[in-house]
């Protein structure tokens, strides 16, 4: 039998080696994909890697609504559903499973007005050639899609002349606009152009979030399927142009790095937070809007991509990056 064991030892060795060879580069690729990069080339310490301790959730803040000297100095100068009304909203019932582009069945979007929280923490993001949506998640930091700050892949480039307009409403900028100080994303997007790593952040020089407030965010390893999905942003197909609209549904499918839903969206909604209102008393991200994904794509490819709008899931690694970017000077 000892002879038999010796006979099989090389086989075990080869299998073990093959397993390691197959797994290790991929594991490295995962960390590398979450490696943070910035438009100014600065290096961010302490983020992305799963080994770092991080809170499972961060609370939001309603903001003061008051334009402080800090906010006014950095700026160039309706009716929103209450949180109770948002909670009572019913998920969209789609008339059919496939619709025109990203409006799936009947259009269930409704207009919101950005002078109260949480709508005022949702911002129009403009840059040379177009616009997106972003959401404050700290006093001077705005969460958005990676493709709203960088065109993606090694041949891509950072967006230019990026500005953030909290609560913007069809020509009215109740809190003015704020130029981006730095743009941030991860190599999974800026090098690989991988849609699963399509998220980014805009850092501002001013603490506008203290006025307009910010959303909380959280991650969980358990499936998100069945959670309410609320998305607010600036769809380019709606009139008046650059007005804020909201859509409500539920999460229909959850993958390791992406979340799928049937909220109605359109070009311009990229970067919108996908969130739900967590109750008071929750152990993390309590009593307010809590982001668990960033909207990025309409229908394409094969299922579930071909029959659901979808976005980048906030995983622990994503959350670690968001917190590091938020806390960076």
């Amino acid at each position: 039998m000892i002879a038999n064991r010796n006979k099989w030892s090389p086989v075990f060795g080869v299998l073990f080696s093959l397993t390691l060879i197959a797994y290790l580069p991929s594991a490295k690729a995962i960390d590398d994909n979450h490696a943070p990069v910035a438009s100014d080339g600065s290096v961010l310490q302490g983020s992305g890697k799963k080994s770092l301790a991080a809170s499972q959730g961060v609370n939001g803040y309603a903001g003061t609504g008051i334009m402080t000297r800090d906010v006014v100095g950095g700026s160039q100068l309706g009716v929103i559903p209450t949180r109770e009304e948002i909670k009572s909203l019913q998920p969209a019932v789609n008339g059919k499973e496939t619709g025109i582009e990203s409006v799936l069945g009947a259009d269930t979007r409704f207009r919101t007005y950005g002078n109260t929280y949480p709508a005022r923490a949702v911002a129009l993001i403009t840059f040379d050639g177009g616009f997106c949506t972003g959401t404050f998640y700290g006093s001077n930091v705005v969460l958005t899609a990676g493709h709203c700050v960088h065109s993606g892949g090694s041949g891509g480039s950072w967006k230019t002349n990026v500005r953030v307009w909290p609560g913007y409403n069809a020509g009215s900028a109740p809190y003015g606009s704020f130029p981006a100080r730095t743009l941030h994303s991860v190599t999974g997007w800026t090098v690989s152009g991988d849609e699963r790593f399509d998220y980014g952040v805009i850092k501002l020089s001013t603490n506008a979030g203290n006025t307009v407030g910010w959303f909380g965010h959280f991650w969980q390893t358990a499936s998100l399927t069945g959670l309410p999905s609320v998305i607010a942003g600036y769809p380019g197909d709606k009139s008046p142009s650059q007005s804020q609209w909201m859509s409500v549904d539920i999460v229909r499918d959850t993958q390791e790095r992406q979340v799928f839903y049937k909220n109605d969206t359109a070009g311009g909604m990229s970067g919108s937070a996908v969130w739900h209102d967590r109750p008071a008393g929750s152990s993390f991200c309590a009593d307010g809007p809590c982001i668990y994904a960033i909207h990025a794509y309409g229908l394409h490819g094969s299922a579930p991509h071909s029959d659901h709008n979808h976005g980048t899931r906030i995983t622990q690694a994503v959350s670690n990056n968001l917190i590091a970017w938020r806390d960076a000077p």
Partner: peptide, 17 residues
Amino acid sequence: ANQDIPVTDRGHLGQGD
């Protein structure tokens, strides 16, 4: 591990301008 390798379904991305 293969599922974790970045996919090529990158659309227009990474192909330059």
